[in-house]
Design a protein around this nucleic acid. Structure first.
Length: 130
RNA sequence: CGAGGAGGAAAAGGUGAUCGCGGCGUCGCUUGCACGGCGUCGAGGAAAGUCCGGGCUCCACAGGGCAGGGUGCUGGCGCAGGCCAGUCGGGGUGACUCGAAGGAAAGUGCCACAGAGAACAGACCGCCUGUGUUCGCACAGGUAAGGGUGAAACGGUGUGGUAAGAGCGCACCGGGGACCUGGCGACAGGGACCGCAUGGUAAACCCCAUCUGGAGCAAGGCCGAGUAGGGAUAGAUCCAACCUUCGGGGAGGAUCAGGGGCUGCCCGUCCCGUCCCGGGUAGAGCUGCGUAGAAGAAUGAUCAUCACCUGGGGGAGGCAACGAACUCAGGGACAGAACCCGGCUUACGACCUCUCUCGGCCG
RNA sequence: UGGGGCGUCGGCAAGUGGUAAGCCAUCGGUUUUUGGUACCGACAUUCGUAGGUUCGAUCCCUACCGCCCCAG
């Protein structure tokens, strides 16, 4: 697999999964985002026999509501978050699910802001793991 | 040079590098999923608003009418509330632009306040005549010029006329208007004659003309666990005399034919199990679905460089208005396909092209 | 996708062709030693925006803007 790729299985795609992470995850605030994170349940990946001993990959989901901006701005925010996660995926410990929710001022965000936010979140998750 | 008007074209500015994303095809690899390599395709003029219409799909339907709803100058085209050309009216110095622009003698409603009077007119202050008079005025009649109110007062101005006045007469203006001319038509021009005869509102009800089934891709079709429901629970498989229209039929035989309750056994009945049935739910299932195309929804990020625009500096050139090279700073809009298509509306920085108008400066 | 509703002072809101009620809040005053209460007074240039119909528009019509709800 590509070292900086971003395949489908690294994304959270079902609404119940989003609700699970937002309901019981730990919160991290950045300037433009509210981040929920929780550990993935173990049986989610146990069906695959070949890599059963490995930890599941960390996944991400992005929520941008219509209050943040029009469709172009919402799309751009989601792309920036996904791009930053793709670049910094090796910094995160495995086995986590994250949901990034854009705050109201996230329209003015630039790529370096998202990168620094990724740094903050990955360090907090690493601390919690030890 | 500046400011505008109309039509058209085009609009993530171009190129490169690195890392990525979605669909399809192909190979690794083995049938699928997943992963990796390669190839190829991958947002707009408005994709937006959802204001109209069509395709497509399902439902309803003999035929006709009413009701309801839409539209409303004329001609042409169109499936369309659209487009093109014209008429009339409003706006603009102009190029040009905007207009739900049918009907008020078919009927009904409404026109607040003010005002005498607001719709088959009427008389408050006035003016005039007559009578009476306590000389303040009162009554009867005529009149509608003047005052006042209002958005609107039943033609306007002038003059003659009169007791005072009045289209009562006349001149001009306005209005109606048989008819004539031009035009397919809306309409335009003229107009004998009529003293003038009927205010507004239909984006109030309404009348007239014309059009009009209802719902929508979450339409519709297909697959379909589980649960509930209905049915079956005694036959199934194999061998085979014999008959045969050679397709088949078939006495007979062998093996296997679940468990439990009522009840010890048989019948019966009930429950569980097994098998079958059709409808249908979850399954963001498959399809509908596209030479972009899903169902957390792809087309991106960073860097370099070139070009463009705006402002400042700069000054080649030019009689002048003006202004090239170079340099510094800033900028690149509106906006993201979700069944497809046509039209409309709205948002929008800069550029290109054609044409026109107005203004300023210089020669 | 289809359908419906709302927008009026800082807040809650009435008014639905005739020139914008009321309550709370705010401000000023009276009463009180002071505060509260009570009373009096003030408080809408444009009724979301822009056009239109009308003598006259919050009201009627059209187009936009924003918010909310319903059905599958």
């Amino acid at each position: 697999m590509k070292p900086e790729g971003f395949p489908r299985y690294c994304r959270i795609r079902r609404r119940p999964e989003f609700l699970r992470v937002q309901g019981r995850g730990t919160r991290v605030h950045t300037r433009h985002f509210l981040v929920f994170a929780t550990r993935r349940r173990s049986q989610a990946n146990s069906g695959d026999g070949t890599r059963g001993d490995e930890l599941a990959p960390t996944r991400i989901g992005v929520t941008v509501t219509r209050k943040v901006g029009n469709a172009v701005r919402r799309n751009r925010i989601k792309r920036l978050v996904r791009e930053a996660f793709r670049r910094r995926r090796s910094d995160f410990p495995p086995g986590w699910d994250m949901v990034w929710i854009a705050k109201r001022g996230a329209t003015e965000v630039v790529f370096s802001d998202v990168l620094s936010g990724m740094h903050v979140v990955s360090r907090k998750l690493g601390d919690r793991r030890r």
